[in-house]
Amino acid sequence: MVSPEKQAALDARMAKLRIAEDDLVEKFVLGSGAGGQKINKTSSCVYLKHVPSGIEVKCQAHRSREMNRFQARHDLCDRLEGIRKEKVQAQIDAVEKLRRQNRPLSRRSKQRSVVEKRKTSQKKSMRRSPGRDD
């Protein structure tokens, strides 16, 4: 069974992520795979769906239904945190990209650019067909 401390920590984490029990659809499914007759006869596999986000989690890590319920909620919290962190990181990356684009060029960078432009100009001038005054 899950200890009261772990359950309290999970409840606090779910409250922090604004996951209400009413938002969850929970189903118990017959297990499958290795484990023998016990797995195949009991509905210990837990299916969770968070309705607002549409995230679905299926857990069959343990033989106990209660442990699978705990693990499924833990996995759901992990996935929601990951999605939120990705969104925050995308915003930070976008701001950083704009900051880099709007940053003025350094003096050395400008000098290199001018040198490259002169080289390109010389190459193109060599491509011209000879005129009357050449």
Rank of each mutant, 00 (worst) to 15 (best):
G33L: 10
R69Y: 05
Q89F: 07
S121P: 00
E116R: 13
R18A: 01
V29M: 11
K16M: 04
D134T: 11
K41A: 07
P52W: 06
L105F: 12
A72G: 02
R103E: 12
F70L: 04
K119C: 14
K87F: 06
K85H: 06
V25Q: 09
K49G: 13
T120M: 08
R79E: 05
G35H: 01
L105Y: 15
D134R: 01
L30M: 14
A61Y: 05
M126G: 07
Q71E: 06
K49D: 09
S64M: 07
M1H: 00
R69W: 11
A9D: 15
K6H: 14
Q122N: 15
A90H: 00
R100T: 09
I55N: 03
V46R: 00
R84L: 07
L10M: 07
N40Y: 03
I39W: 05
L76C: 05
G36F: 05
H62M: 01
R107W: 03
R99P: 03
K49A: 06
E26N: 03
R108F: 15
R18H: 04
C59T: 02
Q122G: 13
E66K: 04
E56V: 03
S106P: 04
A15H: 07
Q7I: 11
G36P: 06
S64L: 04
D75K: 07
K110E: 14
D11N: 08
A90P: 02
K97L: 10
I19G: 00
N40I: 03
R84C: 02
G82K: 00
G82S: 05
D133F: 06
K49L: 11
R99A: 07
G131N: 09
L17A: 03
R65T: 13
S106H: 14
D22V: 08
I83E: 12
A15W: 05
E86V: 00
A20S: 11
K16C: 01
D22L: 07
S3M: 04
S125F: 01
Q60S: 06
R13D: 11
R79F: 02
L80H: 05
S3F: 01
G35C: 04
E66Y: 03
R132Y: 13
A34T: 08
E66C: 01
K110L: 13
G33K: 09
E21D: 12
K110Q: 13
K27A: 12
E56N: 00
N40H: 12
V88R: 04
V115N: 14
R69D: 11
K41I: 04
R108S: 15
R18S: 02
D93L: 05
T42I: 11
D78G: 01
M126A: 13
R132C: 10
R63Q: 04
R13N: 07
K85A: 13
N102L: 15
L76F: 07
D133C: 06
R127Q: 04
G35V: 04
R112H: 13
M126F: 11
A15C: 02
Q89W: 05
K87E: 14
S113A: 14
I39A: 10
R18V: 01
Q7P: 10
G33H: 11
Q37Y: 10
P4Y: 06
N102A: 11
K110F: 12
E5W: 09
E86C: 00
Q37N: 14
E66D: 09
S125A: 05
K124R: 14
K85Q: 10
A8L: 09
R128N: 13
Q91K: 13
K97R: 15
L76N: 01
S3Q: 08
D22H: 12
I19H: 02
D75N: 02
C45V: 15
